[in-house]
Amino acid sequence: MEKVRIDDVDNSLQPAAVMRHLTEPLGLTDFAINYYELEPGDSFAFAYHSHDVQEEVFYVQSGTATFETEDGPVTVEAGEVIRFDRGEFQRGWNRSDELIQAVAFGAPLEYGEQRKLRHCPNCETETDTWLERTDDETAVVAYCKRCGAETGRWFEGSMEGEVP
C-alpha cells in the first residue's frame, strides 16, 4: 500500500498552474495518474496530441474543462469524466473564469509514440513539435519539427508564448 498527500508532491513545470505527477510517489507500474489545477487560460498539455498506446481519462473534480477534439470542442463539467482512446487527438483547456481541479489517468503507463501538433508561425500550419527544457531548467520550449521555429515557451506559473 502507498499513500500520498497531493500537496506534498512537487509541482511540475507545465502549461497548468499546478500539475503533480502521482505515478512514481504511489509506486504505480501499470498506469499513470496526475493531479491538475488549471487557472483561466491554462491547458492540461503543451500541444494538441495523441498517445500511440495509452488511453487517457480525465475526471473533472471542479470547474469546467473544454477539450479540443477531432470532432470539435467538448465541455466536461465538475463530476464528469471523459476518455480518449489510443491515437485520438485532444487537448484540454480552462476557457472559463473558474479554477479547474482534475485528475488524469493513463494506461498503460507508457505513451508509445506521442504526436504533438502546434501552430507554427513560419510554416503557417499545424505541425509536429518537440519539447525541450532550457539549460537552466526554468522553462519548457516547443519547436516545429519541420522548420525548427519556436512555437511556445512556458515558465513556472506563466503561459508566455502560448496562444490558446
Rank of each mutant, 00 (worst) to 15 (best):
Glu39Thr: 10
Glu39Pro: 09
Pro40Arg: 12
Asp42Ser: 06
Ser43Lys: 13
Phe44Leu: 14
Phe44His: 09
Phe46Leu: 01
Phe46Met: 03
Phe46Gly: 00
Phe46Thr: 00
Ala47Gly: 09
Ala47Cys: 09
Tyr48Ser: 05
His49Arg: 01
Ser50Phe: 08
Asp52Lys: 04
Asp52Val: 03
Val53Asp: 15
Gln54Asn: 05
Glu56Asp: 02
Glu56Thr: 02
Val57Arg: 07
Val57Glu: 09
Phe58Leu: 08
Val60Gly: 03
Gln61Gly: 14
Gly63Glu: 05
Thr66Glu: 07
Thr66Asn: 04
Phe67His: 09
Glu68Gly: 11
Glu68Thr: 15
Thr69Cys: 15
Thr69Trp: 06
Glu70Gly: 13
Asp71Arg: 15
Asp71Gln: 12
Pro73Tyr: 06
Val74Ala: 13
Val74Thr: 13
Thr75Asp: 09
Val76Tyr: 03
Ala78Gln: 00
Ala78Lys: 02
Gly79Val: 00
Glu80Lys: 04
Glu80Cys: 05
Val81Cys: 15
Val81Ala: 15
Arg83Cys: 06
Arg83Val: 12
Asp85Ile: 06
Arg86Ala: 10
Gly87Thr: 14
Gly87Ala: 09
Glu88Asp: 13
Gln90Leu: 10
Gly92Val: 01
Gly92Tyr: 02
Gly92Trp: 01
Trp93Leu: 11
Asn94Val: 04
Arg95His: 05
Ser96Tyr: 01
Asp97Pro: 05
Glu98Arg: 14
Glu98Cys: 08
Leu99Ala: 08
Ile100Lys: 04
Ala102Lys: 05
Ala102Arg: 09
Ala102Leu: 07
Val103Phe: 10
Ala104Ser: 13
Ala104Lys: 11
Ala104Glu: 15
Phe105His: 07
Gly106Met: 11
Gly106Cys: 11
Gly106Phe: 08
Ala107Gly: 15
Ala107Tyr: 15
Ala107Trp: 15
Leu109Pro: 11
Glu113Thr: 00
Gln114Asn: 11
Gln114His: 10
Arg115Leu: 12
Arg115Ala: 10
Arg115Lys: 13
Lys116Leu: 11
Arg118Glu: 00
Arg118Phe: 00
His119Ile: 12
His119Pro: 04
Cys120Trp: 05
Pro121Leu: 00
Pro121Ile: 00
Asn122Trp: 00
Asn122Ala: 14
Asn122Met: 06
Cys123His: 01
Cys123Phe: 04
Glu124Phe: 04
Thr125Val: 12
Thr127Phe: 06
Asp128Trp: 10
Asp128Arg: 09
Asp128Phe: 10
Trp130Glu: 13
Trp130Phe: 13
Arg133Gly: 12
Arg133Lys: 12
Arg133Tyr: 15
Arg133Gln: 07
